[in-house]
Design a protein around this nucleic acid. Structure first.
Lengths: 143, 143
DNA sequence: TTACTACATTATAATCGTTATAAAAAAGTG
DNA sequence: CACTTTTTTATAACGATTATAATGTAGTAA
């Protein structure tokens, strides 16, 4: 069993545990998200699966992405462009994004706890999480 | 002359310098953005100015926000919710955002240069800037 | 001041991502 | 297998943003 298979199995177990039914569509969307490294939009997912599910509705994709997000399996990314992108929540990491072609590369960075502490102190908020992205020109677009 | 007046004057000079004509609408939108601390949406701005410009089109607001963004006077903020928010670029700062009521508080934090360096090293990108937000529950919503 | 020209504004329609609705289908349980 | 509840589908609605074409105006130079 590959690592991705294991991740899928764990995810399905987690879903069942929260009372979410496992449909073939959900299975396929999750599988696609786990394997993807491309930060797909809802439409990307819809198109990728229309071979296997010719009758699937876009609404199904959106509904399930929302379910996955609520359960914490998937992260929704909103950048400047029109549509949201969805990442399977493999583990916390950051993105660097090309301002010309939108290519994304993942990178890790040890926690920005200090920033969260400062923000908490300044604002009086109960801090839960943060979001960070770095922007620039990718090697291809430099030319 | 107040600080805001000076900022407005400087902004108009900057616009003229790039060949952008100063119309009453542009003047008013800039003025509103400079004074605002509320991170308004395009519609907020439209509504706020309809008293002064009963015939102004939403398209004018959007067009000019794009112009201001391209010139570097205004920053566009895209969060999960439906519409973008626009900030006059007073100086770089970060936001902490309430996940319940969307209230925003500004805070400063000395540069995250180290993060940019790491991202550059990992990805080979030419880094230009980054974006960071902190999320949590504001004092009012804790109750 | 006037006249000119390029750029801006307006009004409107179109577009596109996303969500709501209601009927039909299927998952899970006993 | 039958039942109940959730899910899917198909479609329409929605809301933010952009495109279009006609009209108006800022800036400029005579």
């Amino acid at each position: 069993m590959t690592m991705n298979d294991q991740t899928l199995k764990d995810s399905l177990t987690k879903l069942k545990g929260t009372g979410v039914r496992i449909t073939p569509q959900r299975h396929a969307i999750l599988d696609y998200l786990i394997k993807s490294t491309a930060h797909p939009t809802a439409d990307d997912i819809y198109k990728a699966l229309e071979g296997k599910f010719p009758n699937m509705s876009v609404a199904t994709v959106y509904n399930n992405l929302r379910v996955f997000r609520e359960v914490g399996l998937v992260k929704e990314l909103t950048y400047g462009d029109a549509s949201s992108r969805f990442d399977f929540w493999h583990k916390d990491h950051y993105h660097i994004i090309c301002t010309n072609c939108s290519k994304m590369v993942d990178f890790d960075y040890p926690g920005l706890d200090e920033v969260e502490q400062l923000a908490k102190h300044v604002s009086g908020f109960d801090v839960t999480h943060h979001r960070l992205e770095v922007y620039g020109l990718c090697p291809d677009c430099k030319k």
